[in-house]
Structures are given as C-alpha cells and as structure tokens.
C-alpha cells in the first residue's frame, strides 16, 4: 500500500467511514473528526510509519504540520518519511 492509501485507511477508521469515502480534498471537519479524533489520528499515523509529527493541539494552524485536508496531511507524512530515509 502507498503512503497515501495507508494514511487514508487510518483516517477512514477514525471517521468510521469506508476508505473510498475519504478523498484527498476532504477536510477533517468534513469527515467529522474533532480535536480529540485528530490527536488520535496523528498518534495512529506516527505508530504506523514510526515517525514523530510536529503537531501542537493548542494551535493546530500554527504547527509545522499542515492538517488543512487529507492531501496536505499525506504530503506532510511523505516529507517526514523522506527525511527519515
């Protein structure tokens, strides 16, 4: 599975949706993921890829990690994976 598919699978599970219902343009709000769900998703992604995501739940918008939508999240993780490699 690609990074994108694995991220979508995690987010879909958090949102209690089918992966096919999660598009790259979906925002977490669209998917019904609240702040607690977001922190849980970040944790699940970190565990899946064995990376640390710079994310502060106080000010999500000012974190280095862009969570605007699924596409930016996938892009951020691809970047972190590239750094790790």
């Amino acid at each position: 599975m690609s990074i994108q598919d694995r991220v979508i699978a995690i987010i879909a599970e958090q949102a209690v949706l089918e992966p096919s219902d999660v598009t790259l343009d979906s925002t977490l709000e669209d998917l019904g993921i609240d702040s607690l769900g977001l922190v849980e998703s970040i944790f699940a992604i970190e565990e899946e890829f064995d990376i640390s995501i710079p994310f502060n739940a106080n000010e999500p918008e000012s974190s280095d990690f862009d969570i605007s939508n699924v596409r930016t999240i996938v892009k951020g993780i691809e970047g972190l994976m590239a750094e790790k490699a």
Binding site: V39, I42, F55, N56, A57, N58, E59
Partner: peptide
C-alpha cells in the same frame, strides 16, 4: 500524549501561548 503541553513556558491569556 495529549499534545497540549508547552515546550517553553506557560503563557495564559497571551496570544503567543503554547500550552
């Protein structure tokens, strides 16, 4: 784990707060 903790200081009510 909750990701609400500050790494530098506690700045209540300040726009620059970090947790």
């Amino acid at each position: 784990g909750l990701r609400v903790m500050s790494k530098d200081a506690c700045r209540p009510f300040s726009l620059t707060r970090s947790g």
